[in-house]
Write a protein that binds this DNA or RNA. Sequence first.
RNA 1: GCGCCUGUAGCUCAGCCGGAUAGAGCAACUGCCUUCUAAGCAGUAGGCCGUGGGUUCGAGUCCCGCCAGGCGUGCCA
Length: 563
Amino acid sequence: MSNLLSAAFDQCQSLIKTAYDTCVANGSLPAGAGTGDCDVPKEASHGDVASNFALAAARTLKLPPRAIAEVVAAQLNLHNSYFDRAAIAGAGFINFFYGAGWRNALLSAIEQDGQAYGRSDSGKCKRVNVEFVSANPTGPMTLGNARGGVLGDALASVLEAVGYEVSREFYVNDAGNQVAMLAQSIRARYIQRLKGADAIEFPEKGYHGDDIWDVADELIAARGDSLLALYEPACLAEMLSYALTRNVGRIKTDLARYGIEYNTFFHESELHNSGYVAETLALIGEKGHLYEQDGATWFRATSFGCEKDEVMVKSNGLYTYYAADIAYHRNKLETRGFDMAIDVLGADHHGHAVRFRAGLEAIGLSADRLQFALYQLVHLVRDGETVRMSKRTGKSITLSDLLDEVSVDACRFFFNNRSTDTHLEFDMGLAVREDSDNPVYYVQYAHARICSLIGKLQGEGVTVAPADTVDAGLLSGETETALLKALALYPSEVATAAATLQPYRINRYLMELAASYHKFYNACRIKEAEPATRAARLKLTDATRQTLKNGLSLLKVSAPESM
RNA sequence: GCGCCUGUAGCUCAGCCGGAUAGAGCAACUGCCUUCUAAGCAGUAGGCCGUGGGUUCGAGUCCCGCCAGGCGUGCCA
């Protein structure tokens, strides 16, 4: 549970504060300056940790930054610190350089934390509900669902890593119009199959996908034409029940293939059947946020920052999806008592964010407890041309199709390889290839390379030594330092990924860590080095192995020991 | 019209709270395996960071206008 980067930042701040206080006390600088910020300079020659204290203080102290830096730096006492020297550079930055103490502390921390390296308890065991995919059970899952699935699952893992108690949830939309339309579509195909294409008109807004034919054929195989004899509503109910069970089953199977497992499949129909939607609506009514107009019941959403009011109960007496969704989120936060709920949604649903929050405010729940991870849609490209995905054309590539061709590792890495804010271009040609163009292999290769090396040395009787027996001060070369710094970054990357709901940061991080290792590997021989150096480099190698493995396991991507 | 997201190298994208000379991968070109995995490394080339203003010691990053693209704006979900 250590974070040697933030520890170094803290120490840097405190060293500067002590030095500055001394300057104030001896009259060499006026009082009143703030603390400034620390960061890791992009350029290694600018040190390992840099402080902009002097630049930030320049205005309040009315002195040139460089002059301030020089006076403060002269008072720095680095004895017993992580740093062995500090230098002034540029406009007045004070740059600190790591010494052997920090290097040893880092290797010890990774050794001690092991699989837990990178984790923290900043989430304080708060309970979080992460809802993702929630694909309509009206057909197979799309590539958009695939992105949402990977994103949601990785986000959940990242939140767990920083100490939240996470529950993964799938909301099954098994009520409402879409589902009714599904039943109508199946019945139409069923009749067409049995009596010919002209026997019934296909519903105008029905689902045209091939899978509807499949469902009809399965029903015929199981029940023959017996469903024709049923009264229409009974027939539709039978067909719907069959189709929902079938489709939800397939969704579960596909997600399991994908390595995604849920704690809960929550059915919308439950909310309706138990009267929970009605109860929630009554609650909104009690607070005076409902009114009747044109035969419908409206929610005064404009009182809560929405552009327009919204219908809760349609003039036909049925609830809108929105009414059910408010009830659903109330159920998560109030009835089931989650401290926080996160909805992972495609950006085409971004309008939901404001409306859902408005609904929660209306029943007296803080909207801050509901957060959204909105991801831009997947842009499918094949042969240089955009392929438009639509469930209704029946020509979309499904998640299942994808998994038949592309490895789970590659899919999981690929879909998490972009910020949620940008469209993800999915190139079928590239995704199907399992070669080095796919970045996941680059990361996995680093891990396999390390395992092979450690194994080979072990065969020669050289094992990874305990951290307190190696002299990490020997790891001061350019590539060794860069690798150590990359390792130290990991806990902060996990924390940032969680705080910003952006798990793709783990991918980025792993690619950089792998690159740092490959560079080190090419620059520093291990096997033929002097015993002390060899031991230190081997320890560094093992720490890299551990960190790569921890990061990959967060993404549920395998860390192969050989390739 | 209004709202959200995006615009950075030929292509796909990083760039966290404003910081030092704007980065990576792919594509192109040049080197490195009798030596720990070449699925790797080193190097060359490639940029008015969409555009015009503003804020300040300092702007790819923050604010405003404009241009372009995606999405949303149903008694659909």
